[in-house]
């Protein structure tokens, strides 16, 4: 690990002011410290934000829930309001990492974790995300875990978060503060596709700090599912994951939300596929039609083309599970 200076401010504004151009905020540290040990991240300053007053979970005036950026993943997953109103979020969080990591990792940090692409992590190989312009090791390398949607010839990495996939389906917003004030970013615009600038994972400004994640009132607690397909039963990143949420009138679909993890540089949604399901009966045939539409244009590489059919089947399974109400408390 490289040498760095360390400070622990008490207020959000102080933290933002203290951060230098080459420094980083640190919360749980579970990903950042790992990256620093691998020399992938080499900040010369860490601003420890753990003393900031960002640990509340509170009901919003709109009837939603505001989760402070420093609330631990395990605290969110087991919070009574989250379990009751947003069980999809609980299920997704508990599908990720290990109990120890969930006890450390913060809500804001989860969104900002970097890809687990082997080439991003190995500083002996080229990676446009780690070192812009150096090339992509994964494109013609071992790419079993990589993207099938939204990738570019610069980067085929995927975003590793499970929590973010549920937040995308629930249409959460990300509250941030920065030198120019506060703003609110919809989850759909928070993570970005790699394009020609794969070193940028998100639309967060360099000196901006996540202060909270806000959930709208609608939690889909009756009909939801998080299906995660991985190489071992627990404690592994998703090959494909699906967050599915339905609003049903009898067997007719009112609203459908479908977000995919493990397939793209961001949680993947296709509004046309969700619209396709609206007003239709909740049948496997209709779910398959939506799945085909979501995976339209998907392109695999040498080792990961299996993900295309896997994703379609996972979508059908997740929607079927959601429609059955099997997960409702």
């Amino acid at each position: 690990m490289n040498r760095f200076s360390y400070s622990k401010p008490q207020q959000v504004n102080d933290a933002i002011q203290q951060l230098s151009d080459t420094g980083r905020f640190i919360a749980g540290g579970t990903n950042l410290l790992d990256l620093m040990k691998e020399n992938v991240a080499r900040p010369d300053q860490l601003v420890d934000i753990n003393a900031l007053p960002l640990r509340e979970i509170e009901t919003t005036q709109a009837g939603g829930l505001r989760i402070g950026a420093l609330v631990k993943n395990s605290t969110v997953a087991y919070h009574p309001d989250v379990e009751r109103v947003y069980p999809l979020l609980s299920q997704a969080i508990l599908a990720g990492a290990s109990a120890q990591l969930r006890n450390m990792a913060s809500t804001g940090g989860n969104l900002l974790q970097r890809t687990r692409c082997y080439y991003f992590y190995d500083i002996g190989t080229p990676c446009n995300k780690r070192e812009p312009g150096s090339g992509c090791g994964a494109l013609n390398g071992q790419n079993r875990i990589h993207a099938i949607l939204g990738h570019s010839d610069q980067c085929i990495a995927v975003h590793p978060s499970d929590m973010a996939v549920a937040l995308a389906a629930l249409e959460a917003t990300v509250h941030v503060s920065g030198p120019d004030g506060d703003r609110v970013i919809p989850m759909s615009e928070f993570h970005r596709l790699p394009g020609d600038t794969p070193h940028l994972d998100t639309t967060l400004g360099q000196h901006e700090l996540i202060t909270a994640v806000e959930l709208p009132p609608r939690g889909f607690a009756e009909n939801y599912a998080y299906v995660k397909i991985r190489d071992r039963a627990s404690y592994a990143f998703a090959l494909v994951s699906v967050a599915a949420a339905l609003e049903l009138n009898g067997n007719t679909i009112g609203t459908a939300r479908i977000a995919l993890g493990g397939v793209a540089h961001k949680p993947w949604r296709k509004p046309e596929a969700e619209a396709l399901l609206a007003g239709k009966p909740a049948t496997e045939e209709n779910f398959r039609a939506a799945a085909e539409l979501i995976l339209q244009g998907a392109q695999g590489f040498e080792h990961n083309s299996f993900k295309i059919e896997l994703a379609k089947r996972a979508i059908v399974r997740a929607l079927s599970e959601a429609a059955s109400g099997v997960n409702a408390k």
Binding site: Y6, I26, T30, Q100
Partner: peptide, 21 residues
């Protein structure tokens, strides 16, 4: 998980936490 310790009664990975924090 070999480095697991209890901090304020909660299990964490001590390898991924800075002592100063």
């Amino acid at each position: 998980g070999a480095c697991t310790v209890l901090v304020n009664g909660t299990r964490i990975n001590s390898c991924l936490s800075l002592a100063v924090m």
